[in-house]
Design a binder for these strands. Structure first.
Lengths: 354, 354
DNA sequence: TTGTATGCGTTATCAA
DNA sequence: TTGATAACGCATACAA
């Protein structure tokens, strides 16, 4: 039997309440008493039963997540993963509220954020570009004691960042590109939705780092901005390919993979270039199978979602987090190692039981 | 506020005890009453608070994990991860007992297994080759209602397998090898500790699959067995390299990476061959940095450990598991994307508080 | 500065 | 077949 607070109280010769005060570092206990209790704790090897503690506290974790309302498949998948993680976490008294906001309107986001501490929200997760408005909103939340987690793209004044190390992701893209092109010679195109977003900047930096150091024979062209617009993407790619005759690879740092492969298809270039992009969405999957995309750097949305919830809970409880568990891994997917789709159509447990 | 058993009781016009009986499918309740309670449950959207239930039951999860006592760095790392995950899980009434057994002696393992249900062990995780003795032991445990989880290497009659898809891992190794060698021509050596182990067989199969289909210009030589003996490894590699003059790559399917790189160093071949191996141990790390290993296929031991505990708990509770979360990812590590070491030397929270 | 008593949501014992 | 009621380990309002 594991020792309980009662055992500690008896051993230390004090009451339950005093043990609790020491355990939770509450004021109003004599140093001598504190020591006595602590000695009893180590002597008996007490570890607090968190589940019982939470039950007694009647604590529930109301958590808000804000996502842009882009119809990007990645964001959609993330939203799904969050909803699922949310309902799975319901068993552990965690409730998740998912908000969407107009992607290009930082003020709309700020508006949502300001109305946010509606009840007893214990934490907020946020996927948004770093604008002054967002910065202020985050600061004000934190001032209220509400922890803020940056999702996918880092925010400098957030309590925590849930997402991959984008610099390392860029480096990884670099190695793959360099290796697959056999070191050169040739030119490499780089595309990004918005070159101001923090994650894009870091990916580019990591990419350049490796290309310059390890593959000097390959010339990396200037980043091109697509603004998430298919038309711009088409135009930009066509222009570049016309002007730079030695392009052998394309690194699409984020977004628009669907348009990109279509454009390449239309130009009859599918399969002739080494194309590396991010996020294994359904479209990217098939492009990978067809050979129009060579490699994908991806992050698991399920992991992102679960980590977000765990981190927010830990922050709310002021508890340390398991860094190892919360580190989102960079996954490399090639045609030959595409992970199987989770079969959501298989008979559920209920079916079996029934 | 979430509804509780009390709300259900009131709604259905029965007592707490009756609700409990229905909830836990205990006998001695009239059909009509059962229906009334169930209606109240769906009407109020009741979900049982598992933590409270476990508290009342006084339930604790005593779990046993059995690992071979090899001094392999991978297994050592796994053991550490398990111990850590175990102490982290102590807060949630989960207790882990780690056993080591002589690697080459299946009977010793069986002996440990038979003494195992010492108290109220709710589950067993096991990393062991598939021998008749092991098969029987697993069967007998399962017959007693104790779920058994196979760790790292699959066991056909286990309840669950915690580890990577080894076939896919072999395929991944294949792509990397093929791509990095530019498709050929050349020869590729394959090494394995024991060619009988299930994981080795599957890796080889996946590797061949890709090499044959996508890189016919590369000749894959017969697998060589090293039996975990440094001497054998040296001899086998030296012989092979002497006989096969066009070897450009080596796929080390498991174990002995340390000896392999030393052998290559001694022969002055370090950095001249494309070497792919498994598990990012400290030695492999430095070999990767030095360039004597090209790529590593690895699985995160922290993830393995946590998944093991989660799965055993879920099985013990007869609860469904989150397949997505329990799928162990295959990670590809190259010199340029070596993950940072977790700094276990940084000041702990206690230090900050003090 | 310390202690008593009660409740959190569920299970389980005993009596009706 | 059903219902009171006392646990489980911990937190906390209130009293001392």
């Amino acid at each position: 039997m594991r020792p309980t607070v009662i055992d500690i109280a008896r051993e230390a010769g004090v009451s339950l309440a005093t043990v609790d005060r020491v355990l939770n570092a509450r004021p109003g206990v004599r140093d001598k008493t504190i020591r006595a209790v602590n000695e009893a704790i180590v002597k008996l090897g007490y570890v607090r039963d968190l589940t019982a503690a939470n039950l007694a506290r009647g604590r529930s974790y109301r958590v808000a997540v804000l996502l842009p309302d882009t119809e990007s498949q990645f964001i959609q998948s993330l939203a799904d993963a969050l909803t699922e993680a949310g309902s799975a976490a319901a068993t552990s008294r965690t409730e998740l509220k998912l908000h969407r906001f107009p992607a290009e309107d930082p003020h709309a986001l700020a508006a949502v954020l300001s109305t946010l501490p509606d009840r007893d929200t214990v934490g907020v997760a946020l996927m948004a570009p770093e604008t002054p408005v967002v910065r202020d909103a985050v600061r004000s939340l934190r001032a209220k004691g509400i922890p803020v987690v940056a999702l996918v793209s880092d925010l400098p004044n957030a309590d925590h960042f849930v997402g991959i190390d984008n610099r390392a992701a860029g480096r990884t893209a670099g190695v793959m590109m360099g290796r697959f092109l056999g070191g050169g010679p040739g030119q490499v195109m780089v595309l990004g939705q918005s070159l101001l977003a923090r994650d894009m900047i870091e990916r580019r930096r990591g990419f350049d780092e490796v290309m310059q150091r390890d593959f000097p024979g390959l010339e990396v062209l200037q980043s091109l901005e697509t603004h998430g617009s298919p038309a711009t993407m088409r135009q930009v790619v066509a222009e570049m390919l016309a002007n730079a005759p030695h392009v052998r690879g394309i690194y699409a740092m984020g977004g628009g993979s669907r348009t990109l492969t279509q454009t390449l298809d239309d130009m009859g270039l599918s399969g002739k270039l080494t194309v590396i992009c991010h996020e294994l969405t359904p479209h990217v999957r098939t492009a990978l199978e067809r050979g129009s995309i060579t490699a994908v750097i991806t992050q698991n949305t399920g992991h992102l979602a679960r980590s977000t919830l765990r981190v927010l809970r830990a922050k709310a409880d002021n508890q340390p987090l398991d860094e190892g568990q919360e580190q989102i891994r960079i996954e490399i997917v090639l045609r030959e190692n595409i992970p199987p789709l989770p079969d959501s159509t298989r008979p559920s447990l209920d079916d079996k039981v029934a």
